[in-house]
Design a protein around this nucleic acid. Structure first.
Length: 174
DNA sequence: TAAGTGCGTCGTT
DNA sequence: AACGACGCACTTA
């Protein structure tokens, strides 16, 4: 079942050494994070209302956390994450992903076991692919059982890069 | 070893 | 009914 979440604000850019990410916020917190897309994103149009104070605070926190993560450091403080926009199954998966410690990796099967649905391995993969907040919700820490990389919605290069920066050479499980 | 095939399984569309 | 960010057994080279 899917619970529809509140309205989403327009995207707010997060400049990083790896490019400009785009963050989206709902009334509950950060609800989406997009990797830099080669093509120019449309930025906030001039004349649009300045984001509300809580959103500005969340955006500051998200920006800081993201830059830390990209620098290979665990981020201490995260903004509230609005993961309400997903099915029950997906939310269970995403909640589990957040338990994977920095610098460690799980297999898709391990995640399936953790949500007490051990046979839903492949579905777990789909749910990871649907993760709306990559990097901060560390779906990149999930590898295939054969210790190979598996897939990544943002492109395998990103997955490798994130793993390596967390200290996983080449993307090997721990 | 490495790479490819087939099939079970399950959530989503 | 078809499709996957899987896992496993098994076959080939």
């Amino acid at each position: 079942m899917k619970t529809d979440t509140a309205s989403r604000s327009c995207g707010m850019p997060i400049p990083t050494p790896d490019g400009e990410f785009i963050a989206y916020y709902s009334g509950q917190g950060l609800c989406r994070l997009e990797f830099p897309s080669g093509t120019k994103q449309r930025k906030r149009k001039a004349g649009l209302a300045r984001p509300s104070a809580p959103i500005r605070a969340w955006h500051a926190a998200a920006s800081k956390a993201l830059r830390l993560a990209l620098a290979g450091q665990p981020s201490k403080k995260l903004p509230p994450l609005d993961l309400s926009g997903g099915t029950d199954f997906q939310r269970r998966v995403w909640r589990t992903l957040r338990k994977i410690a920095w610098g460690r990796t799980w297999s898709y099967a391990q995640v399936a076991k953790a949500i007490e649905n051990p046979k839903a391995v492949r579905a777990v993969g789909s749910a990871c692919g649907a993760n709306p907040i990559p990097v901060l919700v560390p779906c990149h820490r999930v590898l295939a059982a054969n210790h190979k990389l598996g897939g990544f919605s943002g492109g395998l290069a990103w997955k490798r890069r994130l793993l390596v920066r967390e200290g996983n050479p080449g993307g090997r499980a721990s």
